[in-house]
Amino acid sequence: MQITRFGHATILVETSDTRVLVDPGVFSVVDAFALTDLDAIIVTHQHPDHIDPERAPALLDRNPDALLLADPETAASIGFGDWAENADGLETQVNELTVRGVGARHAVILPTIPRIGNVGVLISAPGEPTLFHPGDTYEYVPDGVDVLALPLSAPWAKVSETVEFLQQVSPNVVFPVHDCTISDLAYGVYWGQVEGHGGVEDARRLGQTDTTTV
């Protein structure tokens, strides 16, 4: 399995015959919206840093055969594309890949802000590791995660919660996502806690356009 970051929460997951893009949002680099030959585009929730309403329609036009998968609230309200619903425990087959929904709600930002839907994704295939992208929450901890895309910074998170979530998931490999809210100068403050206290030996500090193989 090859994983490429395209800025903030956006990742491209590739296996031998399948290409899946997750969360192409407003903080994503421009190259994410030029991708072609995608088999699926997955959105965990409706916030614009996870689905860019301005650039995503052109991405869909470039990938007319891609399966479009989103949490039920986003699928019903996104306004462009023919989106299928992803939900907790629901499995969707994308060629050799199995995509399973995890969770239902976004993390609490403030008590006065209503919680929206958020469905993370487990992506697996025979002979491949299982990858988990949780979207915007630490609430749901599935079993059997080999590779974790770890949200590193958000208005809803603090470092102790980040490290506790990583410890609970206990993957073999962890890499950061959701990190455009961190300055370059302060990045090590956050990632240093992950490396020092997360309990995962293979912690890969991937930059905004880096690729890794797992």
Rank of each mutant, 00 (worst) to 15 (best):
V119I: 09
V119R: 01
G120T: 04
V121P: 06
I123T: 06
I123F: 07
S124E: 13
G127Y: 12
G127P: 14
E128D: 15
E128C: 13
P129C: 12
T130M: 07
F132G: 00
F132Y: 15
H133L: 12
H133Q: 01
P134K: 00
P134G: 03
G135Y: 06
G135M: 00
G135R: 04
G135W: 01
D136T: 05
T137C: 07
T137A: 08
Y138W: 07
Y138K: 08
Y138D: 04
V141S: 10
P142D: 07
D143I: 06
D146T: 09
D146I: 10
L148A: 08
A149I: 03
A149F: 05
S153H: 15
S153Y: 14
P155I: 04
W156Q: 01
K158Y: 10
V159H: 04
S160Y: 05
S160A: 14
E161A: 15
T162W: 00
V163K: 06
E164L: 12
E164M: 06
E164W: 04
F165L: 05
F165K: 06
Q167F: 03
Q167C: 09
P171I: 11
N172F: 11
V173Y: 13
V173K: 14
V174G: 10
F175A: 12
F175E: 11
P176K: 09
V177H: 04
C180Q: 14
T181Y: 03
I182A: 09
D184V: 11
D184R: 11
L185Y: 00
A186Q: 02
Y187T: 02
Y190T: 06
W191Q: 03
W191T: 00
G192H: 05
G192Q: 00
Q193S: 12
Q193P: 01
V194L: 04
